[in-house]
Amino acid sequence: MVSMNLIDDLIPPQWRGTYTLFKKELFRFWRVAFQTVASPVLTSLLYLLIFSHVLENHVQVYKGVPYKAFLIPGLIMMSLLQNAFANSSSSLVQSKIMGSIVFVLLTPLSYLQFFIAFLAAAIIRGFLVGISIYLVAIWFVDLTIVHPLWIFTFALLGSALLGTFGIIAGIWSDKFDQMAAFQNFVIMPLTFLSGVFYSIHSLPPFWQTVSKFNPFFYMIDGFRYGFFGQSDISPWLSLVVVFSFLLALAWAALKMLKSGYKLRG
């Protein structure tokens, strides 16, 4: 608590509102960390144990990279993305349903500040889950890190992209099951079909082409490049694609927030 106060004092007054909302969003998921952090970590480890055990001797994707090692960056990124999405979307839907969203709407916080605070909290949750999985996984598997900066860049852009998508889904959804539909019919299929468990080079040409329309493919491929220095396509191309998607979604989210869509009648 003392260290928290120290940080509080460092924040310039004009940023206090944004910072407070960010901090509240952090506390919100941290209070239920068992469900918001520990549980996705456990799920990923189960994937790791099962898939790596079943496929270890059948699949080799990149030269000199055991399948177990290949799998980990994909699983980290998958959880990071899902949790960034879950954080902003469920917080928004819940506070809309509870009505407590008014406490934020009554304040002088601008739509941009609102966006920044929710986004930053989503990114932190994504990172926290991602790093936890990494720290547990390296007990089981030898994992290289060739280009840490690429890892960081794709983790940041990916969590920002999904955090933004979560804001859009959270504003649009009036009920939990609508938000769950985003999760089950958009995010899950796209992550599973993005090359978490395989390289797209192992797919038939048609499915390779389809994968290239999936933004999740670029996030995971670029992220994986940071670990192995090998990837299906150039990380620079992935960077451009992911960044463009982020800009497009951020534009949409900000437009919704600015208009007060579903928030201010």
């Binding site: 106060n5 509080d8 004092d9 924040i11 007054p13 004009q14 206090r16 509102g17 910072y19 407070t20 909302l21 901090k23 509240k24 506390f27 919100r28 209070r31 239920v32 506070s95 509870m98 009505g99 407590s100 008014v102 406490f103 934020v104 304040t107 002088p108 916080l109």
Partner: peptide, 24 residues
């Protein structure tokens, strides 16, 4: 009668003040 279920009364009030730019 709306409320935020994650926090206690004092925390919630301090957050609310913070949104308005108020500090410690």
């Amino acid at each position: 009668l709306v409320f935020d279920p994650f926090f206690n009364v004092r925390e919630m009030l301090r957050f609310q003040a913070g949104y308005f730019g108020r500090g410690r």
